[in-house]
Design a protein around this nucleic acid. Sequence first.
DNA 1: CTGTTTGCAAAAACTTTGCACGTCG
DNA 2: CGACGTGCAAAGTTTTTGCAAACAG
Lengths: 148, 148
Amino acid sequence: MPHCHTFLARLREAGCRITPQRRQVVSVLAHSGRHMTAEEVHRETSASDHIVNLATVYRTLDLLVELGLASRALLGSGSTVYATGEHGPHVHLVCRLCGKVIEMDASKLEGLFNLVKDSYGFVCGPRHFGLSGVCIDCANTEEKVDSK
Amino acid sequence: MPHCHTFLARLREAGCRITPQRRQVVSVLAHSGRHMTAEEVHRETSASDHIVNLATVYRTLDLLVELGLASRALLGSGSTVYATGEHGPHVHLVCRLCGKVIEMDASKLEGLFNLVKDSYGFVCGPRHFGLSGVCIDCANTEEKVDSK
DNA sequence: CTGTTTGCAAAAACTTTGCACGTCG
DNA sequence: CGACGTGCAAAGTTTTTGCAAACAG
């Protein structure tokens, strides 16, 4: 049950009130350890004691993104997903053919983030982003088949 | 008027027909040299001779993404944008506070793409992705103001 | 108490689909 | 010609909004 406290503390710091709904959303997202759609967050929060309205889930996720506690990304074919910056930098390799998502540890990418910072003064938020490409399986398949 | 030919050739290779609409969409996206929403592509194609239906724009953009000729990404607060892989690798630094987008040349990132390839056999498609963070202006502002 | 936050339901925004007609090759 | 692609309009999705009631601090 990792650092929900941290998240809630930063919410409070920002002058936001801590409500059961926000606890729920933060908790679900932080514990999942993965990226989730708003719909999924909604489903999981509803599984517990408090039922959190979908609109509220959206509002809370927006809030988290704005505060830099979570990131929003587009995976595969059009699903918007959210994730906390919890587990350090992560890259999602999204295959544009089969939609599979490989999670890659990005601790080796500190160089990238530093470069960005030094060049532009731009501080990367939750270091979490997606890369589009073709996975090894699809690459193999592609060689044989070549229909539209 | 850069390499539209290349794009069209690859469309044909893939067994797709070359229609005026596809020419238009490809041309607009390739020339713009930036990322655009489907709406924007639609608006610009309509400015020229042929008016391309919005649904067709979506269908064509999907096609380009599927063939790896363009990439789809989520910039700032929820707008899905498309871009060709034309100008070599590019990173978009998206400020989560003001929404500003800085374009960063990513030629120094070959290391990243090679790492991905070697570790997972995953070939990054259009090398074009977004990084979320806080730009230098907002970082300065943030220090003084601290309202919600 | 008082300004935030929520739930609800409706609206807006965005994207996809079915189908008849048009067109590329 | 014949299969593929397009326009149109309608249906789906996903996300946002307005407002009264509920609530944190």
